[in-house]
Simulated scan of single mutants.
Amino acid sequence: MMEELLDQLLQYLLSEKEEYQGIQLPDSFDEKFRLYRSLVNVRLPKPIDPAYLKIQNEFLHEYSLRKGIITLKDMEKLDTHIYLYKGDITRLQVDAIVNAANAQMLGCFVPCHGCIDNAIHTFAGIKLREECANIMRIQGHDEPCGSAKITKAYQLPSKYILHTVGPIVYGKLTMEHKEQLASCYRSVLQLAYDRHLRSVAFCCISTGEFHFPNEEAARIAVAVVKTFLKTHEMEVIFNVFKQEDETIYHRLLTSTKDDEQLDSSS
Results as ranks from 00 to 15, higher is better:
residue 77 K to Y: 12
residue 65 L to V: 02
residue 129 R to K: 15
residue 94 V to E: 01
residue 247 T to A: 10
residue 175 M to K: 12
residue 53 L to P: 03
residue 187 S to F: 04
residue 107 G to V: 07
residue 251 R to E: 14
residue 238 F to Y: 09
residue 116 I to K: 01
residue 8 Q to H: 13
residue 93 Q to V: 00
residue 89 I to P: 00
residue 121 H to G: 04
residue 155 Q to K: 14
residue 233 E to D: 14
residue 222 V to I: 06
residue 209 E to F: 11
residue 162 L to Q: 03
residue 81 H to D: 11
residue 200 V to C: 12
residue 49 D to F: 01
residue 91 R to N: 02
residue 247 T to E: 14
residue 81 H to Y: 08
residue 165 V to L: 07
residue 203 C to F: 02
residue 61 H to E: 08
residue 254 T to P: 03
residue 122 T to I: 13
residue 131 E to S: 14
residue 116 I to Y: 02
residue 58 E to W: 05
residue 225 V to W: 03
residue 227 T to L: 09
residue 58 E to D: 15
residue 71 T to M: 04
residue 186 R to S: 12
residue 22 G to L: 10
residue 246 E to T: 00
residue 56 Q to W: 00
residue 11 Q to D: 07
residue 179 E to H: 11
residue 179 E to M: 11
residue 111 P to G: 12
residue 170 Y to C: 05
residue 225 V to C: 09
residue 85 Y to R: 03
residue 235 E to V: 04
residue 166 G to F: 04
residue 244 E to Y: 04
residue 196 H to R: 15
residue 32 K to M: 11
residue 70 I to G: 00
residue 117 D to L: 09
residue 32 K to D: 02
residue 115 C to I: 02
residue 25 L to M: 07
residue 185 Y to A: 10
residue 7 D to P: 00
residue 81 H to S: 11
residue 50 P to A: 03
residue 133 A to G: 14
residue 37 R to V: 09
residue 182 A to G: 10
residue 229 L to F: 01
residue 40 V to R: 08
residue 9 L to M: 13
residue 162 L to Y: 01
residue 114 G to W: 01
residue 34 R to H: 09
residue 259 D to I: 09
residue 100 A to N: 01
residue 30 D to W: 05
residue 167 P to T: 12
residue 141 H to T: 11
residue 150 I to T: 01
residue 208 G to F: 05
residue 107 G to L: 07
residue 232 H to S: 03
residue 27 D to Y: 11
residue 44 L to K: 10
residue 116 I to V: 15
residue 104 Q to I: 08
residue 24 Q to R: 14
residue 23 I to N: 07
residue 63 Y to R: 14
residue 136 M to W: 07
residue 64 S to Y: 01
residue 161 I to C: 00
residue 11 Q to S: 10
residue 37 R to P: 03
residue 36 Y to L: 07
residue 84 L to C: 01
residue 231 T to C: 06
residue 102 N to V: 09
residue 44 L to V: 13
residue 211 H to K: 13
residue 17 K to C: 09
residue 189 L to D: 02
residue 228 F to R: 01
residue 140 G to Q: 06
residue 187 S to W: 07
residue 199 S to P: 06
residue 231 T to E: 12
residue 213 P to L: 08
residue 150 I to G: 02
residue 100 A to L: 03
residue 156 L to K: 02
residue 15 S to N: 06
residue 174 T to F: 14
residue 190 Q to T: 13
residue 118 N to M: 06
residue 165 V to S: 02
residue 239 N to D: 11
residue 48 I to R: 08
residue 115 C to E: 07
residue 55 I to A: 07
residue 136 M to H: 08
residue 197 L to Q: 06
residue 70 I to M: 09
residue 222 V to R: 00
residue 207 T to N: 12
residue 195 R to S: 14
residue 10 L to M: 10
residue 262 L to G: 06
residue 245 D to N: 12
residue 67 K to I: 04
residue 124 A to D: 05
residue 62 E to W: 06
residue 245 D to T: 06
residue 236 V to R: 08
residue 105 M to G: 00
residue 14 L to Y: 07
residue 123 F to K: 00
residue 208 G to H: 08
residue 250 H to K: 09
residue 172 K to C: 08
residue 152 K to S: 14
residue 110 V to F: 09
residue 120 I to G: 10
